[in-house]
Design a protein around this nucleic acid. Structure first.
Lengths: 145, 145
DNA sequence: GCTTTAAATAGAAATCATTTTCATTTAAGA
DNA sequence: TCTTAAATGAAAATGATTTCTATTTAAAGC
């Protein structure tokens, strides 16, 4: 039997390569978002030869395919994380530890209504992302570390 | 009497310079978002000597002060527009003509509830932006240009 | 108005995240 | 296995954005 990651790649019509599997493994083990550079550093522990462009390319392709997700970050750099939830939804990002959690609130209907009826326009997409402090970081601070 | 732009700058404790006034004038005349480069090109028509870094710095400072607003753009580059609405609100961005319009829907209460009660975290901020086609662009297409 | 001084600016250069190029390797279907 | 398009490594390029430093300027006090 093959790893679920191989099936994921096949589902995206991407060739199943060891490096792509490894990228998916690395991201799925983390509950936080990572930069391409950080993924690359972790890949370098597994592969004697691995180029940073390969990491950039694969992260981009996996993201476009929906296997991983981009974070909207104020510094406008690229960050990715693995999100198992396949449906449309949004994320809570902890600014202290980088943890990403799903939120179910969306507001698509209200947005659709307002754009259709008030602006007389048409909605194509929307982004919603919440920044804050996650439960673990709140408790850590309470405990005084 | 002085332009409202001068008052805006004073309110931000920024010196009132002709270039800052011009940047505010340029952005407030547009209903679309502009890149720093585009603002610079327009500034060069007014000033014989104007550096691109000056435009970048002032756009950044004006944005931090709340006098102008950044667009969240998929290409991760900087874009700014002038938004007179001082309260917390979000924007509809036309992907056809770059027009930016206010939307009143926010969802802050629902988000706050979900993060507090379900994730047991704390909300610090959130971003919401809607992409679509504005009324003018819809009608333009209907007319067949 | 004239001085003073911190802030703003120009111009040039640096930064550096990201992308491109191209030669080589590899996955996977015939 | 053989074939071929796709994936990759390494090096180089790109280009938006930022930094540096000398010069200019806004504006507060005289």
């Amino acid at each position: 039997m093959e790893s679920g990651f191989a099936a994921t790649l096949k589902g995206l019509n991407m060739k199943v390569t060891p490096k792509r599997i490894a990228i998916l493994e690395i991201l799925s083990k983390e509950s936080i978002y990572l930069s391409p550079e950080e993924v690359w550093q972790m890949m370098r522990q597994r592969f004697k030869s691995i180029g940073l462009p390969t990491v950039y390319r694969n992260l981009e392709d996996l993201s476009n395919g929906g296997a991983i997700t981009k974070v909207i970050h104020p510094d406008r750099k690229l960050y990715y994380f693995s999100c198992g939830n396949p449906g449309h939804h949004h994320h809570f990002v902890c600014i202290s530890c980088r943890r990403v959690e799903d939120i179910s609130f969306c507001g698509r209907d209200e947005i659709e209504n307002e754009v259709n009826n008030t602006l007389k326009g048409k909605v194509l997409s929307h982004v919603l992302q919440v920044y804050g402090i996650c439960n673990a970081c709140i408790n850590e601070k309470k405990g005084g570390i």
